[in-house]
């Protein structure tokens, strides 16, 4: 049986990689994929705890996270398309018109 600490460690590592990509990458689509990676890391923690506590509530929460991620992907990608139409670029360095 896999110890809970190892499942949580995998979750933390995936979350950290997602956060690292969120900071380092310049392409807005890649940044969006890093957010999905972080959401999946959280899902893994939910399911690991659900397994070790022996109830299903964690799985329901992971299910809701997946649903919200689907909605977020639809709206986020629509925003990316709208921004690309206005700016002609996908690099976040070009999206600074709200900067003081």
């Amino acid at each position: 049986m896999v110890p809970l600490a190892h499942i949580l460690a995998l979750s933390v590592i995936l979350f950290g990689l997602g956060a690292a990509g969120f900071v380092f990458r310049r392409n807005i689509i890649t940044i969006f994929m890093c957010i999905e990676l972080m959401l999946n890391a959280v899902n893994l923690a939910f399911i690991g705890f659900s397994r070790y506590l022996g109830n299903l509530d964690g799985q329901i929460f992971a299910f809701f996270v997946i649903v919200v991620a689907a909605a977020e992907a639809a709206v986020g990608l629509a925003i990316i398309i709208a921004v690309y139409r206005n700016r002609g670029s996908l690099s976040i360095d070009d999206f600074d018109s709200m900067k003081l």
Binding site: M1, P3, L4, A5, H6, L8, R51, Y52, L53
Partner: peptide, 12 residues
């Protein structure tokens, strides 16, 4: 959550 002490509950 030390690896030795956490034990899985019955599989739901």
């Amino acid at each position: 959550f030390p690896a030795a002490t956490t034990r899985a509950a019955a599989l739901p």
